[in-house]
Nucleic acid binder design. Sequence first.
DNA 1: AATGAATGAGGGTTCATTCAT
DNA 2: CATGAATGAACCCTCATTCAT
Lengths: 186, 186, 186, 186
Amino acid sequence: MRADARRNRDRVLEAARAVFAERGASASTEEIAAKAGVGIGTVFRHFPTKEVLLEAILLDRVAKISAEARRLTTAPDPGAALLALVKHMVEQGATKRMYINALADAGLDSLGSRVGQSTVGREMVDELGALLARAQVAGAIRHDIGVTELIALVVGVSRAAEYTAWDGGVLARTLEVVIDGLRARG
Amino acid sequence: MRADARRNRDRVLEAARAVFAERGASASTEEIAAKAGVGIGTVFRHFPTKEVLLEAILLDRVAKISAEARRLTTAPDPGAALLALVKHMVEQGATKRMYINALADAGLDSLGSRVGQSTVGREMVDELGALLARAQVAGAIRHDIGVTELIALVVGVSRAAEYTAWDGGVLARTLEVVIDGLRARG
Amino acid sequence: MRADARRNRDRVLEAARAVFAERGASASTEEIAAKAGVGIGTVFRHFPTKEVLLEAILLDRVAKISAEARRLTTAPDPGAALLALVKHMVEQGATKRMYINALADAGLDSLGSRVGQSTVGREMVDELGALLARAQVAGAIRHDIGVTELIALVVGVSRAAEYTAWDGGVLARTLEVVIDGLRARG
Amino acid sequence: MRADARRNRDRVLEAARAVFAERGASASTEEIAAKAGVGIGTVFRHFPTKEVLLEAILLDRVAKISAEARRLTTAPDPGAALLALVKHMVEQGATKRMYINALADAGLDSLGSRVGQSTVGREMVDELGALLARAQVAGAIRHDIGVTELIALVVGVSRAAEYTAWDGGVLARTLEVVIDGLRARG
DNA sequence: AATGAATGAGGGTTCATTCAT
DNA sequence: CATGAATGAACCCTCATTCAT
């Protein structure tokens, strides 16, 4: 791919990330083009559909979580690692609703969930599942939940936090409740 | 207000509740009018803006929660009462995103949150606060959280459940984790 | 239907007829709206799709031919009647390509031909067929052709005449050749 | 012109012929470039406008008819030769609307008809005219028509046949009518 | 007061044409 | 010269809102 094309593609992606995060998925493609400083046609050249653009962003996010989960698989204390990852995901995603939607979609098999059906989506679920299983074996996390519930909780807290008006303290305390709920009972 | 006007207003509200719950806030006003069996002009006569119509529904929901919380204030076991209310709210709201948005807004003071600034919104927060305080005094609920965190958790779990593809079991287990997290530690 | 709605609908139809005739089916809906003196939304209220609008015009034309053919069924000299109808159709349609397309479509059963599959389309074919059969029985028209060929010829001459630059004389002489070809040989 | 440039030009022409024949003049330039195996820029280098590209193809077709007519000028039976040419043109053109439009344009002097004003266009008209005159002198063709009418008839039948759904039989019978109409009356 | 027709800005998408690589 | 990325006007269509009936 040509250098200028690559640069524009990246600009569009970056702009889309920002705009979708701020306005939700119903933000206009025109606004994204404007923010990226390119013509509307350029957006559609790189992403033939608005949906494709959304997907590209989401898959990117999901891939990052996946990578992080994989890295943590070999951590000495799997329980602490998992809880840290949960914290990280929530804090990262707190103001970025798209990010969270990607996660939510990945937890789904249903039709209509492109992310859930994608390879990278399934990989992320697998990685998280492995990490969770190890944490449960280590006795750190309760045994009556699976990846789906884990993802649901991360998504939930993140969604709740979407309203940026809730300051960091609220988010931290809310997260604490969830994390305590996840721990295995003595 | 004339009797027929009153009747039409109510019909519109009911239709809007149903349509918004099913399709989300982006549902068209035309569909609501059709479902209510009135002309679109009638909808706009009673609610000069789509936003106003949404608000009316939300305030109504909030008022209902408020009433329920008030009723539970005198319950013998405040801890159990609160947890039951949380469960109820989540289950109610699980498939009705509008309902949940009302809750979320009520937890906010921020500009832009009409519900949060409304009288009925503040009342609901107060009622929930009172119930929470009693449950904490009774030793059932941890002391490091306030109403805001409580609402955040309800909103969060509900939002996570918005994807109806997550079956009831997932919702139940997710809720269980949160409720366990809310309990005071022995 | 309200009087104003009816009036606007008619205006749109009339404008569409003119614009499509002049520019072909690829003319823009916007231009039609402008010519009709209404907003673009009005066009789409009455005809939810560009295709529907086209169809409405075509079916109207076809219905008119149908009616004329039916009237001629009882003419004393069916041969002369048919040839007159052919002449009339060509002269009418000479500058109106949409009109002719409707005819062409009606001669088709194929998928994609909405007119050909419509009731009014089939009726027209039936009427023309009856008239043709009578003219053949009367010995005025050769026996080795059917309605399809008849329509093909009308469409053909009309299409040839679409270029308005060909003056009336050319059209008349061309038509004469075809009509002579249609006659039964002594 | 460099050899590779020449080769690309030819490839584009060939691709354009195929694509326009299949999709009509509204086919996209991009598709032509793809089929030719060149970049879109190359198409526009050789043909600065889509219209120019169309014209180039049409002129080529017209030149071919011209050549064929010239060859037939010395045929022993000019009447049969002309009717055969008519048949040939129609059958050739039946599925290639572009080809036919070239013919139609050539029959025109009018403004807007680039083909009609081109040298090769005029030449074709002259050749056809000569052939027709000879056929009339030989007593095979009626005397009350000229080249313009002849072209009109070919164009007409071809246009009528554009709808490929009309099978070969219909086309043959329609053509027969026209050819009979063209013959001189005993 | 009720109706629903009219409006037009805005949204996603296409494509001929230009121009940097 | 060739390439294909960039551009933006234009297209079809939707929907909140206004206003004549």
